[in-house]
C-alpha cells in the first residue's frame, strides 16, 4: 500500500501511426486549400468598414414588409410549400425505406432498385432539385413544391432507414413464423417500433424544408425567396433585411415548437 495505485498505472499507449498520419494530413490539406482560395482574414475587416449599402440596410431594416400584401402572400406560399412538400415526401419516404431493408424487401431485385432510387434522390441538394424543376416545369410555386417533395423524401427516408436498421428483430421473426404477409409483418411488427421516430423525422423535415424554401425561391421556385431576390435586384437592402429578419423569426418559432413536440415523441 506504500506506492499509490496511480503510480502503477500502465503507461498511456503512444498514439497509433494512423492517428498521427491522418492528423498531419488534415493539417496539410487545410493549409494547402486556404492558400489555394487566397484566404486572408484582413479582407473581412477592411471590407466591412468600407461604406456598404447592404450592411447599412441591415442596421436600419424596413419592417413595413410585415404589412405588405405581396410579402405576406410570399410568406404564406412558403409555408404552404413546406407543409405540402413535407407531407407528400414523407408519405412516399416511408415505404421507400421499409421495402429497402433486408427484412422488408419482397425480393433482391426490388431491394436493389429501391436502394438505387434512394441514393440518387439523397445525392441531390435542395437547390439542385429546384433548378431541375424550374427548368422542367417553369418558374413558380409548382417547381418549388416538387423540389421540396423530393428533398423531403431524401431526408425522411435516410433518417428512417437508419432507425429501421436498429430495431428489435424479434417481432419480425414472430410475424414471419405466424405466416404473415410481408406487408402485414412490416405494419404490425416494424411500424409500431419506428413510428415515434418517423413522426419526429417528419417534423424535422418540415423545419429543413421551411429553411430550404427561402433558398429555392432564389432560383425562381416560388415562396419568400423570390421576394428576397426581388429586393436584392432593386438594391432595396433595408426592405430585404426586414423580410429576412421576419423570416428568421418564423423559422425560429417553428423550430422551437417542433423541438418541443419531438422531445415528447421519443
Amino acid at each position: 500500500m506504500t506506492d499509490a495505485a496511480v503510480d502503477r498505472l500502465p503507461p498511456r499507449p503512444a498514439p497509433g501511426r494512423f492517428t498521427v498520419l491522418s492528423g498531419l494530413g488534415a493539417l496539410v490539406l487545410t493549409v494547402l486549400t486556404a492558400r489555394a482560395v487566397d484566404f486572408d482574414p484582413t479582407g473581412l475587416v477592411t471590407d466591412l468598414t468600407r461604406p456598404n449599402s447592404v450592411v447599412e440596410g441591415l442596421l436600419d431594416p424596413d419592417w413595413s414588409q410585415i404589412w405588405s400584401r405581396r410579402s405576406r402572400r410570399a410568406f404564406i406560399e412558403t409555408l404552404q410549400l413546406a407543409v405540402l412538400g413535407t407531407a407528400g415526401g414523407s408519405i412516399v419516404a416511408l415505404p421507400l425505406a421499409l421495402y429497402a431493408t433486408d427484412y422488408g424487401a419482397p425480393n433482391r431485385v426490388v431491394q436493389v432498385v429501391l436502394r438505387l432510387i434512394n441514393s440518387v434522390i439523397r445525392s441531390l441538394p435542395d437547390l439542385l432539385w429546384a433548378l431541375l424543376f424550374v427548368s422542367a416545369v417553369g418558374i413558380g410555386a409548382l417547381s418549388g413544391l416538387l423540389a421540396l417533395f423530393f428533398f423531403s423524401i431524401a431526408v425522411v427516408s435516410k433518417l428512417t432507414a437508419d432507425t429501421l436498421d436498429g430495431i428489435d428483430r424479434g417481432p419480425i421473426e414472430a410475424g414471419v413464423a405466424a405466416g404473415a404477409s410481408n406487408t402485414s409483418m412490416l405494419r404490425t411488427a416494424v411500424l409500431p417500433q419506428i413510428l415515434p421516430s418517423y413522426v419526429s423525422f417528419v417534423l424535422y423535415g418540415f423545419e429543413i424544408n421551411l429553411r430550404a424554401s427561402a433558398v429555392i425561391g432564389l432560383v425562381g421556385a416560388g415562396g419568400i425567396g423570390e421576394r428576397i431576390q426581388f429586393f436584392q435586384g432593386r438594391g432595396e437592402w433595408d426592405k430585404l433585411w426586414g423580410l429576412v429578419l421576419l423570416f428568421f423569426l418564423v423559422v425560429f418559432l417553428v423550430e422551437r415548437i417542433s423541438i418541443v413536440l419531438r422531445r415528447r415523441l421519443v
Binding site: D168, A174, V176, A177, G179, A189, P192, Q193
Partner: peptide, 20 residues
C-alpha cells in the same frame, strides 16, 4: 406461409412489439 399458419411459435425473448 400456409405451413406457418398451422404452426404457432413461442420464443425465448418473447418477441413482442413493446410499443403496442
Amino acid at each position: 406461409r400456409e405451413l406457418r399458419s398451422e404452426v404457432g411459435m413461442v420464443f425465448q425473448g418473447f418477441n413482442l412489439v413493446d410499443r403496442t
